[in-house]
Amino acid sequence: MAVFLQSALSGILIGGVYALTGIGLTLIFGVMRVINFAQGDLVMVGMYCTFWLFVLLGIDPFLSVVLTMPALFLLGALLQRTLINRVLDALPQNQILLTIGIGLVLSNTAMLVFTSDYRILSTSYSSSSVALGVIRLSTPLLFCFLITGVITAALYWFLVKTDTGHAIRATAQDRDAAQLMGVNVRFMGVLAFGLGSALAGAAGALVAPIYYIYPQVGGAFTLKAFVVVVLGGMGSIIGAALGGILIGMSESLAAVYIAADMKDLCVYVIFLLVLLLKPSGLLGKSRM
């Protein structure tokens, strides 16, 4: 029982990060109907930012979230304004080519600048843990989850309570009608891509003390974010949060009860089952 609880809880904690990348992806998709296949590479950029802020300036990775998020917001907004904006009316496959291309440029630039060495960010608390009865939870993972929760709650508040948040949701639900309310939908696209990138950056900062940091690390995050979003229902934020937790948990349980190298297999089996039984995703119809 202790083993079950231990691995389920660890899974939920790491699932928070998957949720964060997934929410970014779903936000971008909701507003612009563009699937951002560079999402994981933006996580990678966030990881490197955090790594260098720690190594050069000694800034704690969990504190550096407040720097990486705005930096990635600007990067995302810039990408949207200069590149994504041009393909909004293009065929989906062309949009996919563009976002995959952006991802390749990001990861190869990282390789050029930082080499393909694996780097490890180790803090004083990297290997410490917190005891909860018979369960021990890794301290960095716990911090990571708590900050994820705060960021998600803040985003939710922004979308539900503010005028700009309403405008983002309105644009996602009916682009034409939003324009008729006086919403500048092009600007909403920039904002959504900026926010989505900022969330990827936050995820990068939060996992920097837990994962190896290398230029190609993004691919795995993109794939997971995509699974999380499809699982939860494209465009649904609560769905993405739920999907993230679910994927994290099944991964962790599969590693313990089946085999460590089979955990990805389990994730995709669950993914395919959901698609088979409920093609629109767990929270299919609802959008933001």
Binding site: A167, A170, Q173, D174, A177
Partner: peptide, 22 residues
């Protein structure tokens, strides 16, 4: 617009608030 085009996943109040977005 034709066919109402209200924001389906927003409440009546939120729809009204959107009307005064500018």
């Amino acid at each position: 617009p034709e066919a109402r085009r209200v924001f389906p996943e927003m409440t009546v109040l939120e729809n009204l608030r959107m009307g005064s977005y500018i």
